[in-house]
């Protein structure tokens, strides 16, 4: 199994994933991949504690896979969450990535 824990940041709604050391990251590539049930449960607990500190809301885990060395969510909905609206490539995380690449 491969999972990551995700949430939305409380103050601005930004999609985030749980990275190394319990830090929330804005880029899925930096998320901490969970390979056992125990690791997933621990990460969800960490996320819940963060929610209790008013850092994030709606904490849950998602399935991910690796394609061409990149971390990709399995569900299409989560792929859109990780990128931005599919018909507005100038918006969301995908836009920032494009800017950075340019």
């Amino acid at each position: 199994m491969m999972k990551v824990v995700t949430a939305n940041r409380l103050f601005d709604g930004e999609v985030v994933w749980l990275g190394a050391g319990g830090r929330w990251v804005e880029d899925l590539g930096e998320a901490h991949v969970l390979e056992t049930k125990e690791a997933e449960a621990a990460a969800l607990e960490e996320g819940a504690a963060s929610a209790d500190r008013q850092e994030v809301v709606d904490v849950y885990s998602i399935d991910v896979t690796v394609e061409e060395g990149m971390l990709i969510p399995v569900r299409f909905r989560e792929q859109i969450r990780a990128a931005g609206p599919t018909m507005r490539l100038d918006l969301g995380k995908q836009a920032r990535r494009r800017e950075n690449a340019a």
């Binding site: 409380l10 709604g13 930004e14 929610a51 500190r53 008013q54 809301v57 709606d58 909905r77 931005g84």
Partner: peptide
């Protein structure tokens, strides 16, 4: 934001003011 209201308590209040949490924001 200060933590005096939980999300569970806040959600109906924000919805009454038309504020949703969607996919990206």
């Amino acid at each position: 934001l200060a933590g005096d209201l939980t999300e569970e308590q806040f959600k109906p209040l924000r919805l009454m003011n038309g504020l949703y949490l969607q996919l990206h924001a």
